[in-house]
Amino acid sequence: MKPIIKRCLIVTLIISFILLYAFLSYRFQAGFICVFYQFTGWYCPGCGIGRSVLSLLNGDWMQAFRYNVLLMPFIIPGVLLLLFTAWQYIKGVSPQDFLIFRITKRFGIPIAILLLVYGFLRNILDILAPTML
């Protein structure tokens, strides 16, 4: 099998799995759980992002912001960036040269610090907790 066809199949498989998981989660309201929250009872920086996406799909922008105010504005650019990464993978670009990893190489440390501070703050400030409006 040609390498490009193999890479296309892998990307198609991953996207199909994500779409199936998203559909089943949406249909049966049994979504992605946070391992950190399950074990500690504390919110992590990503808690509420799945519910935020669902609220966004339902057109409820305010509730989407309420679930995860830091990451919600980056959902659409993030999805586009992941799709571009998939395209780079299919084209055979080396992982070190993926745009997403060049961005993280440059801005990764400030992003990680921001995420960790946000994760800490949302456990002490109720306004940042992922709850209903």
Binding site: C44, P95, T104, K105
Partner: peptide, 21 residues
Amino acid sequence: KNNFGLLLGLSIAEIICCCLP
């Protein structure tokens, strides 16, 4: 080769999605 960007990107993805510790 330095894989810093790749490791950092995956670490951030893991902080958000999978397992914070």
